[in-house]
Computed example of a mutant assay.
Amino acid sequence: MTTLATRTEPLVLSGAAAEARLLEARAGLLADRLVPYLGPDLLAIAGTAPVPLLPETVAAALHAKAPAPARIRTNMWSVGQFIEQRRHRKTLIAYMAEIFAASPEATPLHAWLAGLPLSLVVDTWYDGAARAAFAATERGDWIEVQGVTRSGENRDIWTKVYDPAGAEVLPEAADGAKTVLYKPHGAVTPAKNFLIADSDYVEVLTEIDIQSPIPEVVKRLRTDRSFLFLGCRFHDQMLRTYARQIAKRSAGAHLGVVDLATAKKNELKFFAEMDATVLDLPLARAVEILVG
């Protein structure tokens, strides 16, 4: 089935057409023409994930540790702000580290991507599965760039850079890496960086339109590449805003693997606005096709 895109509806491929287009995407990944944009749903392919997979479930986990007012308790960023204000930033970081302490196993897709000559991989969740997959390859030519909070910083900083051993290195190290693993919201490994509270995003969202928070290496690498969205949900405005800005000024012709049975209208509208083709496939099937 193919439907023409409108202002609020993306082009959708399903069945054999979707699988054929995903095989083309596989070739694009092998040729380093596509940037994988990974979300937390990938962690549940093999069964129940050991960490929360949605902002709402992170909010519930934080609320269980520090009860928040009813009006905000389903909003991850607001609950994070509440804990930071009432119990200190260190407490919020400790809670997040506990919530994401269980290490999800790297999926076959993570492992496959880590072995490819990709220039850029974007991983949007707080877990360490992607880092573990790269570490398992014993490659030494990759680098990780993480978004960090500006709380407590006295310098103009948006990101920190880590080498394969987990040591912080100078930002320039990313320019010489074969592969950049970009974690825009931070991660539990290797240094417990979390963009989680409303205050973390105040300055980010103020400047994201002019791209200041986006690392220069990401801006450079995306220019002649398109994005393949896998395992991502875009039901929240914050998630959509980040995706738009990360993919800004890229080559376009993006793809998104989406289960139409569970997708919300605002998610489909997002893909339409991004001029992205939606591949209506179960995520597990999409991974099977990509990994081969």
Rank of each mutant, 00 (worst) to 15 (best):
residue 4 L to M: 08
residue 4 L to T: 15
residue 5 A to S: 10
residue 5 A to P: 05
residue 6 T to L: 07
residue 6 T to I: 11
residue 8 T to M: 11
residue 12 V to C: 11
residue 13 L to W: 10
residue 18 A to T: 07
residue 19 E to G: 10
residue 19 E to P: 08
residue 22 L to A: 02
residue 26 R to E: 04
residue 35 V to H: 04
residue 40 P to W: 05
residue 41 D to P: 09
residue 42 L to D: 07
residue 43 L to T: 02
residue 48 T to K: 12
residue 55 P to I: 00
residue 61 A to P: 06
residue 64 A to T: 01
residue 65 K to A: 11
residue 66 A to K: 02
residue 71 R to I: 12
residue 74 T to K: 06
residue 78 S to M: 10
residue 80 G to K: 02
residue 84 E to Y: 06
residue 84 E to F: 03
residue 86 R to I: 01
residue 88 H to L: 03
residue 92 L to F: 01
residue 95 Y to A: 14
residue 96 M to C: 08
residue 97 A to F: 02
residue 99 I to C: 01
residue 99 I to L: 01
residue 104 P to K: 12
residue 108 P to E: 15
residue 109 L to F: 09
residue 111 A to Q: 10
residue 113 L to I: 04
residue 115 G to K: 00
residue 120 L to P: 00
residue 121 V to F: 03
residue 122 V to W: 05
residue 122 V to L: 12
residue 124 T to F: 08
residue 127 D to L: 05
residue 127 D to I: 08
residue 128 G to D: 12
residue 130 A to G: 10
residue 130 A to P: 05
residue 135 A to V: 03
residue 137 T to V: 06
residue 138 E to G: 10
residue 139 R to A: 04
residue 143 I to H: 00
residue 144 E to W: 04
residue 145 V to F: 07
residue 147 G to T: 11
residue 147 G to I: 03
residue 149 T to Y: 01
residue 149 T to K: 01
residue 152 G to A: 04
residue 153 E to C: 09
residue 157 I to V: 15
residue 161 V to Q: 13
residue 166 G to Q: 08
residue 167 A to K: 13
residue 168 E to D: 12
residue 170 L to R: 12
residue 172 E to R: 13
residue 174 A to R: 13
residue 178 K to E: 15
residue 178 K to W: 15
residue 180 V to C: 03
residue 180 V to G: 01
residue 181 L to N: 08
residue 184 P to S: 09
residue 184 P to H: 03
residue 186 G to S: 05
residue 188 V to Y: 07
residue 189 T to K: 14
residue 191 A to V: 09
residue 191 A to T: 03
residue 192 K to S: 15
residue 193 N to L: 09
residue 198 D to N: 09
residue 202 V to Q: 11
residue 202 V to N: 11
residue 203 E to C: 06
residue 204 V to I: 14
residue 205 L to S: 11
residue 205 L to T: 07
residue 207 E to A: 14
residue 208 I to M: 12
residue 211 Q to P: 06
residue 211 Q to L: 15
residue 217 V to G: 01
residue 221 L to Q: 08
residue 222 R to L: 05
residue 224 D to K: 10
residue 225 R to L: 02
residue 225 R to A: 00
residue 225 R to C: 00
residue 225 R to P: 01
residue 226 S to W: 05
residue 229 F to V: 13
residue 229 F to E: 10
residue 230 L to S: 10
residue 230 L to E: 10
residue 231 G to M: 05
residue 231 G to S: 04
residue 235 H to Y: 12
residue 236 D to M: 04
residue 240 R to P: 03
residue 243 A to N: 08
residue 244 R to T: 04
residue 245 Q to D: 14
residue 245 Q to K: 14
residue 251 A to R: 12
residue 252 G to A: 02
residue 257 V to E: 09
residue 262 T to Q: 12
residue 265 K to D: 11
residue 265 K to M: 15
residue 267 E to V: 14
residue 268 L to H: 13
residue 271 F to R: 00
residue 271 F to D: 01
residue 274 M to N: 10
residue 277 T to K: 13
residue 282 P to G: 08
residue 284 A to G: 14
residue 284 A to W: 03
residue 285 R to P: 08
residue 287 V to A: 02
residue 292 G to S: 15
